[in-house]
């Protein structure tokens, strides 16, 4: 019943095809614009790996086309390389990472992803260490530019995500030169605005965004299902519920059907022009 409604909705573009999962909320960094107030001491809010794999299978059965995994820093979870590999047996995966934990051992473990439809999306905001690290933490730039070519040479697909309030053309040109030099083509570089949620609010950063501004991508967390991966944010240590869809996450048909219902209530043309992805 639900697959018969979700699949055509995804196929004709009424519902985005990607299902996101927040694997965890803790992180080795504490970026100034972090939506989820992630950091070393953040509440972990982990999704069980078996649950993630089950969600991927259900997503495939319902007619979704892609998966996204984000956090927190996903590679703080020791099983993440194998989990990503297992997820990719259901659907193509984009996995967001800060790119700072790629030791030789982790590089060896992610090697298995080279043969699978998995892309690692690594955050790199500026072409210079000082300006990049000001918002992301010490040595972030150096670790990222060291990790990317090592991943690329192992055949792992790497995307670059640049999250900024604004960036001058000349600085962006240098950033693009940098990622091309690291082996990441322009097609795999996304630039997106800071959203004024989570820690960004405390630093007076970002643009305001509500339902019309955010992609209706079903996002599963340990706390429930949300509208878009920009939904399950944390501020003041408290989970934001304004973009909560359902607390039920499995069967996935429950939040998927609720999301579709909300999407179909939107007036035509209500989508924002904010480049949020």
């Amino acid at each position: 019943m639900t697959a018969s409604t979700i699949r055509p909705a995804v196929a004709d573009g009424r519902l985005p095809g990607r299902v996101w999962m927040y694997s965890n909320y803790h992180c080795n960094l504490a970026c100034t614009y972090c939506l989820t107030e992630s950091g070393p001491k953040a509440q972990r809010r982990e999704l069980d790996p078996e649950a993630m794999i089950d969600i991927a299978r259900q997503a495939l059965e319902l007619g979704f086309t892609d998966l996204g995994v984000t956090g927190g820093e996903i590679f703080l979870l020791s099983r993440m390389p194998e989990v990503l590999a297992e997820l990719a047996r259901s659907l193509p995966v984009v996995a967001l990472t800060n790119g700072t934990l790629f030791s030789r051992r982790l590089l060896d473990e992610v090697q298995q992803l080279a043969e699978l439809p998995v892309a690692l999306q690594i955050s790199l905001d500026r072409p210079d260490p000082d300006t990049n690290d000001a918002m992301r933490g010490p040595d972030n730039f150096a670790k990222v530019v060291a990790a990317i070519p090592r991943l690329v040479e192992r055949g792992v697909t790497v995307r670059i995500a640049t999250t900024v309030e604004s960036i001058e053309d000349a600085e962006l040109d240098r950033l693009c030169e940098l990622h091309r030099g690291l082996g990441v083509p322009d097609a795999d570089h996304v630039i997106r605005p800071i959203i004024a949620r989570g820690r960004a609010v405390d630093h007076d950063l970002g643009v305001q965004a509500d339902v019309p501004d955010l992609p209706a991508e079903l996002t599963i967390t340990a706390d429930g299902a949300f509208w878009s991966p920009f939904g399950p944010t944390v501020h003041g240590g408290r989970l934001d519920t304004d973009l909560l869809i359902t607390r039920t996450t499995r069967p996935l048909s429950v939040p998927a059907q609720a999301l579709l219902g909300l999407v179909e209530q939107r007036p035509a043309g209500a989508d924002s022009t904010l480049n949020i992805r």
Binding site: V211, D242, T246, R247, T248, V254, A258
Partner: peptide, 29 residues
Amino acid sequence: SEAPLLARPHYAGGDPGPIVAALAQVPEL
């Protein structure tokens, strides 16, 4: 300001009362 998407219509007319404001924690319920 915290009302989940499915609960928002219940807040459109103002304070929905404590039963709704509690049940809003579980919107599908």
